[in-house]
């Protein structure tokens, strides 16, 4: 099933594999969205997941981020088998997802969004108050590390460009001590320049040691960013390729099934 034996975690236990999903199946009613899909992700790499609409990319990602529970199959994270009941559970284990809608609140400031639901507090007598200073500083630090055009942490998200919003959402996911950040079409709604900036953010994130799982329809982007590419077709990960050892034409052929893995 895998193209080169060196990519299989079983035959090459020395490879720095962070996550292994094996034989994941998931059905909705009579529809088999995932029929035994297996992928691996390595530490410090961008792994892309490509495939036609309905190939099962989203379902697989939702299984990894705890939104769906697989019907069967195993997920191994950092050598330990994990079962995610909820997205919160996945997040606690170090898997964060940047959804397409970004889950930001426009009326709130960047730093408020950054810590939404996990605010830092300090005691003030009997009551707990927001530690605004610490949150602002922490958010600013993370944003500046990641993005070139980092917005001010005190500005409202409403005033940010699409790319800046994406950067905030990615930085937020990265800031939660995550091992893996899953990104669903992060540049789908962005212009050329903004896309370049967000790609820079993704690269910086990878360089900082986080494993990125990138779902994208954009082949050029996948070739630019990814270290490893998994191609999905009809609920199965039909092929895995090193980005350096494949081409856009081959990927298209694998997606359409014109070429067997």
């Amino acid at each position: 099933m895998t193209t080169s034996p060196s990519l299989s975690p079983v035959s090459n236990p020395g490879a720095d594999v962070l996550l292994t999903a094996e034989n994941i199946t998931k059905s909705f009613g009579g529809i088999h969205a995932l029929k035994s899909a297996s992928i691996t992700m390595r530490r410090g790499e961008i792994t892309a997941l490509i495939g036609d609409n309905g190939a099962g990319k989203s379902t697989l990602v939702r299984c990894l981020s705890g939104i769906h529970k697989p019907d069967s199959g195993t997920i191994t994270l950092d050598g330990e088998q994990v079962v995610f009941e909820t997205p919160h559970h996945a997040s606690q284990s170090g898997i964060e997802t940047v959804h397409q809608n970004l889950a930001l609140v426009e009326e709130l400031a960047v730093w408020q969004n950054f810590f939404l639901g996990r605010e830092l507090t300090r005691r003030l007598g009997l009551i707990r108050t927001l530690d605004r200073k610490a949150m602002k500083a922490h958010a600013a630090e993370l944003l500046q590390d990641l993005a070139v055009n980092a917005p001010s942490v005190t500005s409202k998200v409403r005033r940010l460009s699409g790319g800046q919003r994406q950067a905030v959402a990615i930085a937020r996911a990265a800031g939660r001590n995550s091992k893996i950040v899953i990104m669903d079409e992060p540049t789908a709604a962005l212009g050329v320049q903004e896309t370049a900036r967000v790609e820079h953010v993704i690269n910086t994130l990878r360089d900082s040691g986080v494993a990125v799982l990138l779902i994208s329809h954009n082949f050029d982007q996948v070739m630019r960013l990814a270290d490893h590419i998994w191609v999905m077709r009809a609920g199965v990960a039909v092929a895995g390729r090193r980005a350096s050892a494949t081409s856009g034409d081959e990927l298209v052929a694998l997606i359409t099934g014109a070429r067997a893995a």
Binding site: L102, E107, Q112, G117
Partner: peptide, 24 residues
């Protein structure tokens, strides 16, 4: 303006889907 609860009130009013996605 100074407590978690207040921030959550604003978040729910601003965009409840996003607030829920962040565990509120």
């Amino acid at each position: 303006f100074r407590t978690r609860f207040g921030l959550h009130v604003q978040a729910v009013g601003g965009n409840d889907e996003s607030a829920i996605a962040n565990g509120i």
